[in-house]
Amino acid sequence: MNRAFKKLESVRKDLIFWKAGAQPPQLLASGEVVMTSVYNGRIDAANNKDGKNFGIVWDGSLFTLDSWVILKGSPNVDAAYKALEFMGKADVQAGLPSHIAYGVTNKDSKKYINPKRLKDLPTADENIANAIEINTQFWLENNDRLTERFNKWAASNG
């Protein structure tokens, strides 16, 4: 952690922090920054819908998995399982990337995805090769204290 803060310190003057997911593509487009952390779906949308030509460095990218939750005591438990089963099917999941360039969890679904589209996804083999899963456990444990420390750092001789 100290190493991370030291690294931040070395680039302090060149950093801009964003709050909303819509900001990074805008910051890139306006020339405010030359490189940014970003949700890959935003870059894909900017490239395909707004005619931009941003590149993505997949090496060392961070990813996280979302979860479905069935409420305890729900009257529709069976229907919920059915929905989960349906959503887990390879051919169903393969429909997602045509709407947003997010990854698919069923490995078989790659067969159904257009290879041209597949290379835009974080779950494409060459893209995920060196990716790191965000450690939810770590952040549950440290979010408050690290946020305080980060803000202390940000406020000092900024």
Binding site: I16, Q23, N143, D144, T147, N151, G158
Partner: peptide, 28 residues
């Protein structure tokens, strides 16, 4: 301040929002 400020310009509401919606620490 969240949109036009830097990390060193956030006011107290930013942290209230952080604790209410990000980490759900209502006491803080």
């Amino acid at each position: 301040p969240a949109l036009v400020g830097g990390a060193a310009d956030q006011m107290i509401s930013f942290f209230i929002a952080f604790y209410t919606s990000d980490t759900v620490n209502w006491g803080m």
